[in-house]
């Protein structure tokens, strides 16, 4: 049977649209893949056990990046320690306690705005508040606090979503048994929201680990001879190390392999952390039964 011409025109339009959609997906996949491949090809020769476990030597033209890995680890851990409790508690307030109205709406807008603030602004804020005003100096503490504020919106957002995802019927069932509101939140709502909160927070870790601007003035050192002994010491950090080697050193060309190696390690870490989050999430989705 012959297909009428109006139908053929429709099929053509449909085909065109699908092609466009496929093309967009392809462009994104190819650019991401290309980027990763480029980093890998340029960096993999540098990355070995010694590179990961030794400090830099010879004015940072040789040796490894262990202090920077450690520094990023400390900063990220500190940021999570700051942002996770604060973020979860804020989210509990916003979703469970606060009367939904103009004030909550303003707080939500504030949180969303915080998420859109350029990271260099966080850096300057941290410099002004923690480093200068509170006189912590440039150190892990100042950097972790600054990064903590940076990832706070991510954690609040993820926690709010997770809390809202807990069925209202669970809350009603608990309250109707004469269980207080706080105990209902603590015993029923939080345990069921926790997987979602953690997944969102892990994505925050990736963000904190990768940022340069917030730690430039608050925590990161160009080079430190010794490892930090307290949270009031400066540290080297992966993103800042890359920035320094690529722009501020005296041997920029010489250190190219180290730069690529460091980029590879950083990207590997961030992607690894995100992958963990994705795995946890899919595992939980499969187990969920409501």
């Amino acid at each position: 049977m012959a297909i009428p011409s109006t139908m053929r025109w429709r099929y053509f339009k449909e085909g065109l649209f699908f092609a466009l959609v496929r093309l967009s997906a392809l462009v994104i996949t190819v650019s991401l893949g290309g980027l990763l491949l480029y980093i890998f090809l340029n960096g993999f020769r540098t990355v070995n056990w010694a590179f990961l476990t030794l400090p830099p030597t010879d004015s940072m033209t040789k040796g490894g990046i262990m202090p920077a890995i450690l520094g990023t680890f400390y900063l990220t851990l500190g940021a999570i320690a700051v942002a996770l409790p604060l973020g979860i508690m804020s989210a509990i307030y916003l979703t469970e306690y606060a009367k939904q109205g103009p004030i909550v709406r303003i707080i939500r807008i504030g949180v969303n705005c915080l998420a859109g603030v350029p990271s260099i602004v966080f850096g300057l804020f941290g410099l002004g508040l923690f480093v200068v005003f509170l006189q912590f100096g440039s150190c892990i503490l100042s950097g972790a606090l600054t990064l903590g504020i940076l990832i706070l919106p991510t954690i609040i957002g993820a926690s709010e979503e997770a809390l809202k995802g807990v069925p209202q019927t669970f809350r009603e069932a608990s309250l109707a048994l004469g269980v207080s509101k706080w105990q209902t939140i603590y015993r029923i709502v939080l345990p069921n929201a926790l997987p979602g909160i953690l997944t969102g927070s892990i994505l925050g870790i990736g963000r904190a680990a990768g940022e340069t601007a917030p730690i430039m003035f608050t925590a990161a050192a160009f080079y430190t001879a010794k490892l930090p002994s307290s949270i009031l010491d400066e540290v080297m950090a992966l993103p800042f190390h890359i920035y320094v080697l690529a722009t501020a050193g005296t041997h920029i060309e010489e250190t190219r392999p180290i730069q690529y190696g460091t980029v590879l390690v950083l990207v590997g870490l961030v992607l690894g952390v995100d992958l963990i989050a994705i795995f946890i999430r899919s595992f939980i989705r499969k187990r969920k039964r409501w």
């Binding site: 069932a173 608990s174 109707a176 409501w290």
Partner: peptide, 8 residues
């Protein structure tokens, strides 16, 4: 309640 709502 209307819909059975056991805890998980």
């Amino acid at each position: 309640f209307q819909k059975p709502n056991p805890f998980p």
